[in-house]
Design a protein around this nucleic acid. Sequence first.
DNA 1: CGGAATTTGTTTGCTCCCCAAACAATCTCC
DNA 2: GGAGATTGTTTGGGGAGCAAACAAATTCCG
Lengths: 141, 141
Amino acid sequence: MLPSLLGYVLRRTQSAVFADFAATFARAGEALTPAEFGLLVLVERNAGLSQMALARALGIDRSTLVPILNRLQARGLLVRRSSPTDGRTHALGLTPAGEKALAKFAKLVAAHEKRIASGLSAAETRKLIELLEKVRDKAIP
Amino acid sequence: MLPSLLGYVLRRTQSAVFADFAATFARAGEALTPAEFGLLVLVERNAGLSQMALARALGIDRSTLVPILNRLQARGLLVRRSSPTDGRTHALGLTPAGEKALAKFAKLVAAHEKRIASGLSAAETRKLIELLEKVRDKAIP
DNA sequence: CGGAATTTGTTTGCTCCCCAAACAATCTCC
DNA sequence: GGAGATTGTTTGGGGAGCAAACAAATTCCG
């Protein structure tokens, strides 16, 4: 019965994919969570982003963001610059070390993505993402 | 870029589905996590199951199981009976209250499942589950 | 038979993610 | 200029997950 429940299969799959992500990084002697990776990518492509904007883009609460930013900043990958125009916000940005690290992380993520999608054709992968997005959009916000 | 990463879309979708699950129960004045529901279903269909067997079936560590069982037992939905044949194991089972509660929970889950799959045809839902299982099976264990 | 190895459930310790509520600082709008 | 909104942080709470260590019980073998 459980194997026919979308929510259950989704949860189990997500758990397995998370484990693969962690294993991929561990084998490379690196450590990063999926949340940290997503954050780094978003900050790189949107330098100067505020924490609120970032939290919205990631779909998480702004208070959830704080410890993640703290960790990345402590690792020297990211900085909170004070915004000249708005004293409340922080302009987030990657350090040079952050840019460099992200380039390496992206390669690991690419290998990870390739592995988990290795049982699917390119068309199936696109279809899967499309179906997942449809499910996501029907959930109660 | 992130929207084309399977892992990212999977994580976001799972998060939205989890929120829908929680909202469905909250609106009905009930409280249950997806993990608790999965556990209850497995115990109902496999009365007398040991904790190790249950942990394996759920794909989690046996130490992770303990607090979940404690909660359900504290709510009077589940019991740990001592096995007559093997003194190490506990024979898990639902109480009459647990059976009754699970029947109600199952209805809520059915409504939740119907909602999240409401953007998909029956064939698409089956396809989605099939693709998710393929992804799950390729992940590093 | 009897000791060694294994299995099971628990506890402890650690990590991550998530939210809600409260607070000070800052900005915006009247 | 003051009221109200926004931003980042802190605090408090919860769920989920793993690893390592332990006692109790069972199994395996010599």
